[in-house]
Amino acid sequence: MSTPSYALRDSMTMLRRNLKHARRYPSMTISIVAMPILMMLLFVYVLGGALGSGIGLPNGADDRSGYINYLAPGIILMAATSGAVATAVSVCTDMTEGIINRFRTMPISRGSVLTGHVVGSVVQTMVSLTLVIAVALAIGFRPHATPLDWIAAIGLLALLTFALTWLAAAMGLVARTVESASNAPMPLTFLPFLGSAFVPPESMPAGIRWFAEYQPFTPINETVRGLLTGTPIGNSGLAALAWCVGLALAGYGWARIAFRRHAKR
């Protein structure tokens, strides 16, 4: 068996390990799903009427029912970012409890450990996305997307999830405690708040508006919203892909460096 075959086999073994952990300890997975759903219910049923009529949404979105169509893509994006916390905690737990040292004594591919964490987290997050989309549809989200648009939107969300998972894995590697690992990815989860997920950037003060327009999650959100609801995408699609690829490369490189440094201790 060739070296790539060994690496693939070991990565699949680590993937099964992480999925079994998620099944046996579902509290983290439940929290990943629950947070975006609760935020969506809060904004739709508590704030939706005021926001829908107050921010001048296009396409007739002037009330709660219209606001759902504006909000849902942002909540779906938020669900894609929420899995980062679970990844950082899982990686840090392995690093601090000594299991990584045991793996190093075994004839397995070193890269398979991180690969198993990343792929397992991507799978869990995509399942969470499916549940969030189902709830959004149940409470009134009415996308106008074609099957090709859905495929493009899900592909972009999967790429974003992959990128953020590598970043979260790196954060888990450099964290000294599980508590600090759980806090490190929180800015990634809440950055959509400072973008176009809940209100248009045009409604924000000048400084915050500038940040909202140029931070990575705004073009990603505008692309997902455009694909699902038919709003103009413009240059957001290319910017979204560039941000996702850049974040993925940065996270992967940081994780590889951090893992090698830990191996030399």
Rank of each mutant, 00 (worst) to 15 (best):
M1T: 12
S2Q: 05
R9Q: 13
R9T: 14
R9W: 10
M14H: 09
L15F: 11
L15A: 05
L19I: 10
R23V: 14
R24Y: 13
M28S: 15
M28F: 13
I30S: 07
I32Y: 00
A34S: 14
P36L: 06
L41E: 04
F43G: 01
V44D: 04
V46D: 06
G49W: 02
G49P: 02
G52V: 01
I55E: 07
I55P: 00
G56L: 14
L57D: 00
L57G: 08
P58F: 14
N59M: 14
N59P: 00
D63P: 00
Y67I: 01
N69F: 09
Y70G: 02
L71P: 01
M78K: 02
A79H: 01
G83K: 01
A84P: 04
A84T: 09
V85T: 15
A86H: 04
S90Q: 07
V91G: 01
C92M: 10
D94P: 05
E97A: 12
E97P: 02
E97C: 05
G98N: 13
T105D: 09
R110D: 06
R110V: 08
L114M: 13
H117M: 02
V118P: 02
V118H: 00
G120V: 01
V123P: 00
S128A: 15
T130P: 04
A134Q: 10
A138D: 07
I139N: 03
R142V: 08
P143D: 05
H144A: 15
T146E: 13
L148W: 14
W150N: 04
A163M: 10
T165L: 04
A168E: 03
L173N: 01
R176L: 15
R176H: 15
R176E: 15
V178H: 11
A181T: 09
L188T: 00
L194W: 12
L194F: 15
P200T: 12
E202I: 12
S203M: 14
P205W: 05
R209L: 11
A212S: 15
N221C: 11
T223A: 05
T223P: 02
V224Q: 05
T229N: 13
T231Q: 11
I233V: 10
G234S: 09
N235Y: 12
L241F: 12
L241M: 14
G246Q: 10
A248G: 14
G253Y: 12
I257D: 10
A258P: 04
F259A: 13
F259W: 08
R261S: 13
